[in-house]
């Protein structure tokens, strides 16, 4: 529907649970839009003078004062998710980035190193396929795949439905890998405690300027694929400078999920979030 990023009907999505049992949860939205044509005949009974028989027809226009945040329904569900995470002592992280920055690779490596000390769960968001959830399961953590169809972001409702399927234990880490897209996911709170934006050095160091909202709403920025720095025109210093202008509190970790650079720093950061 949306020609640039594929925004579509947010109710069109599927959740694949880790048993691959193909019992897709289809969420249906019913637009209760009936045509209530009750045929109001203006039969004024002379005995009753001009007293209207259908009083509602003569009501003045009604102003419905709302002052409601357009994302309030999503925000309400996100707060519920957040409360659920806090109650269970689950650290939930929302990982956002452009397509292909290395989110799944970082998670694979993280699971490999930490699965013996932490319980880890993953929710994968992609428009199509269960490939990323399959990769995660191979590395040893339970994963659930949400396919957003033409939708270009995860929302809080999709997460709360997935939480019911993925039996998350107390005192665990839940990683949510959002759909590769730096625009829409910025506006949709999922209830995470921290948001992590991943950029890779092949993307250009002006990325923060182009997608300010994403950098403004994140807590940590991972600069990935640093093993490729010798081959590309990417200045880490410039990227950090731009991102800090937008968000003075943003933290940074330089990483290569290929060579392992920065992984120890990332595990430290995760430990500090509890």
């Amino acid at each position: 529907m949306c020609d640039t990023c594929g925004c579509g009907n947010p109710d069109e999505f599927k959740i694949h649970d880790h048993n691959h049992d193909h019992d897709h949860d289809h969420s249906h939205s019913h637009d209760h839009q009936h045509d209530h044509d009750h045929g109001h005949h203006h039969d004024h009974n002379p005995e009753h003078g001009h007293e209207p028989t259908h009083t509602h027809e003569h009501l003045p226009k009604k102003v419905i004062s709302l002052n409601m945040d357009i994302l309030s329904e999503n925000n309400r569900l996100a707060e519920r998710n957040r409360g659920w995470f806090e109650g269970k002592h689950v650290l939930c992280l929302n990982m956002v980035s452009s397509p292909g920055s290395g989110k799944t690779s970082i998670l694979e490596k993280t699971i490999h190193s930490l699965i013996s000390t932490w319980k880890i769960f993953v929710i994968e968001g992609d428009q199509q396929t269960t490939r990323d959830a399959d990769r995660i399961e191979k590395s040893g953590a339970p994963a659930i795949q949400i396919n957003t169809g033409s939708g270009c972001h995860l929302d809080a409702k999709m997460i709360s439905l997935s939480l019911k399927k993925l039996e998350i234990s107390d005192h665990s880490i839940l990683f949510i890998e959002n759909v590769g897209n730096l625009v829409c996911p910025a506006m949709f709170d999922l209830g995470e405690q921290k948001r992590v934006v991943v950029i890779s050095v092949t993307e250009g160091d002006d990325k923060p300027l182009k997608y300010p909202y994403m950098f403004q709403t994140s807590n940590l920025c991972i600069i990935n694929k640093t093993d490729l720095l010798p081959y590309v025109d990417f200045s880490v210093e410039t990227a950090v400078k731009y991102a800090r202008q937008l968000n003075p509190n943003l933290e940074f970790i330089q990483m290569s999920s290929k060579t392992g650079e920065g992984m120890a720093e990332w595990y430290d950061w995760l430990g500090k979030q509890f």
Partner: peptide, 28 residues
């Protein structure tokens, strides 16, 4: 260009609030 998914949020909100207020058409 995520304005379309936001437009859908507005329609959802309008529909819910109109329902609560018992109106079946919005003029403005």
């Amino acid at each position: 260009m995520h304005e379309l998914s936001l437009a859908l949020e507005v329609i959802g909100l309008a529909q819910r609030e109109a329902g609560k207020n018992g109106v079946s058409a919005i003029q403005e």
